[in-house]
Design a protein around this nucleic acid. Structure first.
Lengths: 247, 247
DNA sequence: ATTCTTTGCGTATTTTTTACGCTAAGTTTG
DNA sequence: CAAACTTAGCGTAAAAAATACGCAAAGAAT
């Protein structure tokens, strides 16, 4: 990823917290920094996928570019959730050295715009990910990361948690067809709380944009579940005049 | 506001969408740009309060600084809601000229971090605001603003609207003591919808952090209403274990 | 054949929301 | 000074949603 230096804006970057769901746990995609990392950094060899942006590039385009290079996917679900711009967020020393060395620019401070991204783990091209030393990590058991990337993930998770309470964006994490249980586990993992399966089912299926398919699971060691799919069009329509507030 | 140029980071700014509530309408605080604005800009002479940030300054501190200078208030309620960083967001021509002239720096692109801020209109020092050519404008009838500031306000309003659905931050817009009706009107203005006064009251007063005071209105042409206050401590406590999700 | 797990339908109870009716307490009007 | 007007604030009845469970059914595993 050594681009011609003159095209980069050395002050601006994007970082992506890429969430994935393997059916059991919520995962985050991390990059292992190559090469010149010294001893003191041994326990910080992972970082978020991200990059400086080109001089004439949109922030969101930069995020899409990073993710496309990493996973091969296009039009990934992305949501900007915060900016991290403390003057000292890239501490002097190894991290700064590494960054200056790999970009070839003197850096005063880098402000990074953070996005979270939801992808279907099975869709992303594992080969590509491996090419970039990327790997999936359980969001509840992350290593110490470079820069302030642990804080970024934490905040991203908080925003995701907030978001799924009011819009069913978690379908972005599931395959096109899914069972009720799959969604329930996903909700349980993100919210960090067990839910009653019968009540969850009732609540979910009341939504007009969850459509029952004519397909069933097979090969599972219990009664096979029906598959459903998410109808985005109906969802958007149903939100047209939603009023709601709480104290 | 002509600071010594060398202390500024010419690539980074903050802009604040300052909301206020006058009892009837939601207002936004706008600055009238002084001096050298040419004819073609006549209809864009207003902008959001904002500034470039100092080289070693935190983003949020910069926002607080801008608002302190403007209103005289400290510890203002601030929430970062978005970054605006399109390469062309400050169009060439008059706007860029104005900015380059007033900062004395060649600017490639300025990424601005946008905050919305909630203040009690009566608390802000009107004299200071006038000193900075600031004035309150009805959020539903804004003039054409400089740069992309109209979009910034629009997005800020959207975020505020989203936020008040789940946390009662709108108390930041009201005086320390208030009547049920005042809050209701505020909700109606922000949500853009009329609400039934009896049901609104029930819903509001069920919240344990709304405390009835021993004071009543006087001098109104109808039955005087009781005053209430918002107990922040109780609010925070009550949120400790709130689980909630919707489809 | 028995056990085990999850599915998926159902029921009963409580809580919340919604849609109103109506009296009370003040000011303003005539 | 009484009547009109306005918002406050309590209440009720019906509908909808949330909660807490029971339980039979469909498969795989033993």
């Amino acid at each position: 990823m050594q681009h011609p230096v003159r095209n980069f804006n050395p002050h601006l970057s994007v970082d992506c917290v890429v969430f994935g769901f393997d059916g059991e746990q919520l995962k985050v995609l991390l990059i292992e920094r190559p090469g010149s990392v010294q001893k003191s950094d041994r326990n910080k060899r992972y970082k978020l996928p991200g990059d400086l942006i080109f001089k004439m590039e949109n922030l969101e385009s930069a995020a899409q570019r990073v993710l496309h290079q990493l996973t091969g996917l296009e039009n990934i679900f992305l949501r900007q959730f915060s900016v991290f711009g403390k003057p000292d967020r890239i501490p002097e020393g190894d991290d700064l050295n590494w960054l200056e060395h790999s970009t070839g620019v003197d850096i005063n401070r880098v402000v990074t715009t953070a996005y979270y991204s939801l992808i279907r783990i099975d869709k992303s091209k594992t080969a590509k990910e491996l090419l970039h030393n990327a790997s999936w990590h359980n969001v509840n058991a992350l290593p110490a990361l470079a820069f302030d990337h642990n804080s970024i993930i934490e905040k991203g998770l908080e925003c995701l948690r907030m978001a799924i309470r009011f819009e069913p964006i978690c379908f972005e994490l599931l395959p096109g067809r899914f069972t009720v249980r799959q969604i329930q586990i996903l909700y349980e993992v993100i919210l960090g709380q067990q839910l009653d399966n019968r009540n969850f089912r009732k609540k979910l299926l009341k939504a007009c944009y969850i459509e029952k398919l004519d397909e069933k699971q097979s090969g599972v060691a219990h009664k096979p579940a029906n598959y459903y799919k998410f109808n985005k069009k109906k969802y958007i329509e149903s939100r047209k005049d939603l009023l709601y507030y709480n104290f």
